[in-house]
């Protein structure tokens, strides 16, 4: 933009200190095109107000886990069970699982309480709902913002994994998008569930205790899934964490996954994410529009 000449100021006839809003039709057109991004911007600004807490936990969690389990436990495991993990040390075996589970756990937090907050506690969704944004855009915008948050956390986690020397393969960084996809595969169905919760009677605590924790323990995280008895392996098969971990291992240390199975892993995660996303849009529209 060039400096407005006096003639142009007269032409627009607006006092320079009091700009005027563009017409409603322009607002509506912009909202139709960019609405999801506008809402994502809002959520990211809210998150920004506690950025130091987020950063501290994003750095603290991997350092703690990698030290305690990866280094402490790994020393012991490698001494007694060398070679049990496809020729790599226990730390390298564990790291991709910890990476994916950290992303999933962050997703589990972000797709529960903040959703309830949007509908019930502080009713944050009802502000944008009265604006030109559509309910689909509120859903999409919230997902975009959480995806950005998951990506940032996962990148930090991966850098610390790499610093521990636990991602020997050159393709290791590709485990980042895989972990984020795993987070969405678990988080989006959970978002649809959370949106349907009318009153918090501890459902989210139950989800953490009886879904997230067993998934964390029995998805081939700390030991290969096929060391579990057959009748427990299904937990891994339906768990986004197992699919994400298997893919992550292939990427960080070259764990041998047949191509067809890798495709199954990716498809499983994608399908879960898409089902959750579509379901969330339906539930949001119904709840906001009544």
């Amino acid at each position: 933009m060039t400096d407005p000449t006096p003639a142009r100021v007269q032409e627009t006839a607006a006092p320079p200190y009091r700009p005027s809003a563009h017409p409603p039709a322009v607002s509506a057109a912009r909202a139709r095109t960019f609405g999801s991004w506008y809402y994502a911007e809002h959520v990211l600004r809210s998150m920004n107000s506690y950025r130091w807490t987020l950063l501290a936990s994003s750095v603290g969690t991997p350092v703690l886990y990698l030290f305690a389990m990866g280094v402490g436990l790994a020393t012991l495991v490698d001494r007694t069970a060398a070679g049990a993990f496809g020729g790599v040390g226990y730390l390298a075996f564990l790291a991709p699982a910890l990476l994916a589970s950290a992303t999933i756990m962050t997703a589990a937090t972000e797709f529960t309480y903040p959703v309830m907050d949007g509908f019930k506690w502080r009713r944050v969704y009802y502000g944008p709902h009265a604006s030109p944004l559509s309910t689909d855009q509120i859903v999409n915008g919230h997902i975009i913002a959480i995806t950005a948050r998951l990506t940032a956390t996962t990148i930090i986690y991966f850098l610390i994994v790499a610093a521990f020397g636990a991602s020997p393969s050159a393709a290791g960084a590709a485990a980042i998008p895989v972990a984020v996809l795993s987070g969405l595969a678990f988080g989006l169905p959970l978002m649809a569930y959370s949106a349907g919760v009318e009153e918090d009677k501890g459902q989210f605590a139950l989800v953490m205790r009886f879904v997230v924790t067993p998934m964390f323990l029995f998805s081939g995280t700390f030991f290969p899934l096929d060391t579990l008895p057959v009748f427990l392996r299904w937990i891994g098969w339906i768990s986004p964490l197992w699919h994400g971990t298997e893919l992550g291992r292939a990427l960080t240390y070259g764990y041998d996954v047949p191509a067809w199975l890798a495709v199954v892993h990716v498809l499983f995660l994608l399908v879960l994410a898409v089902i959750g996303w579509r379901r969330a849009r339906t539930v949001y529209a119904r709840r906001l529009g009544r």
Partner: peptide
């Protein structure tokens, strides 16, 4: 019922809301 974003500051509530209109 007010539905302000209590995690944002007073002025930021206005800015964020204005963005919904593409302003």
């Amino acid at each position: 019922q007010d539905n302000l974003d209590e995690e944002l500051r007073v002025r930021d509530n206005l800015l964020v809301y204005g963005r919904y209109f593409g302003l």
